[in-house]
Lab assay of single mutants.
Amino acid sequence: MLEGKVKWFNSEKGFGFIEVEGQDDVFVHFSAIQGEGFKTLEEGQAVSFEIVEGNRGPQAANVTKEA
Results as ranks from 00 to 15, higher is better:
residue 23 Q to Y: 14
residue 6 V to E: 00
residue 65 K to Q: 11
residue 32 A to F: 06
residue 7 K to A: 06
residue 3 E to Q: 15
residue 38 F to M: 15
residue 42 E to F: 08
residue 24 D to N: 14
residue 13 K to F: 07
residue 29 H to G: 03
residue 54 G to A: 13
residue 36 E to S: 07
residue 6 V to P: 01
residue 64 T to S: 11
residue 42 E to G: 13
residue 42 E to Q: 14
residue 28 V to P: 00
residue 63 V to P: 01
residue 33 I to W: 03
residue 38 F to W: 13
residue 31 S to Y: 11
residue 61 A to L: 08
residue 15 F to Q: 04
residue 31 S to K: 13
residue 65 K to N: 09
residue 35 G to I: 11
residue 7 K to L: 06
residue 29 H to A: 03
residue 38 F to T: 06
residue 28 V to S: 02
residue 2 L to F: 12
residue 37 G to I: 06
residue 24 D to R: 14
residue 41 L to I: 07
residue 34 Q to A: 15
residue 40 T to Y: 07
residue 53 E to Y: 09
residue 49 F to H: 01
residue 54 G to N: 07
residue 33 I to C: 03
residue 13 K to W: 11
residue 47 V to R: 00
residue 43 E to S: 14
residue 4 G to C: 02
residue 29 H to V: 03
residue 8 W to V: 04
residue 15 F to S: 03
residue 1 M to Y: 10
residue 65 K to F: 07
residue 56 R to T: 07
residue 43 E to K: 09
residue 23 Q to P: 04
residue 22 G to R: 09
residue 9 F to I: 03
residue 53 E to H: 08
residue 21 E to S: 08
residue 31 S to V: 09
residue 5 K to S: 06
residue 51 I to M: 10
residue 49 F to S: 01
residue 17 F to H: 04
residue 53 E to P: 15
residue 47 V to W: 01
residue 26 V to F: 06
residue 11 S to Q: 11
residue 16 G to A: 01
residue 44 G to D: 06
residue 18 I to V: 05
residue 55 N to E: 08
residue 16 G to N: 00
residue 6 V to Q: 01
residue 52 V to R: 07
residue 54 G to E: 11
residue 23 Q to E: 12
residue 45 Q to M: 06
residue 39 K to H: 08
residue 57 G to D: 03
residue 30 F to M: 06
residue 14 G to L: 03
residue 9 F to P: 00
residue 2 L to I: 11
residue 39 K to A: 07
residue 60 A to C: 04
residue 29 H to F: 13
residue 43 E to N: 15
residue 56 R to Q: 13
residue 27 F to N: 02
residue 38 F to Q: 10
residue 46 A to S: 11
residue 26 V to I: 14
residue 48 S to C: 13
residue 39 K to Q: 11
residue 45 Q to H: 14
residue 23 Q to G: 09
residue 17 F to E: 03
residue 46 A to Y: 08
residue 46 A to C: 04
residue 52 V to S: 08
residue 48 S to R: 09
residue 12 E to H: 09
residue 26 V to S: 03
residue 63 V to C: 04
residue 64 T to W: 11
residue 66 E to W: 15
residue 35 G to E: 09
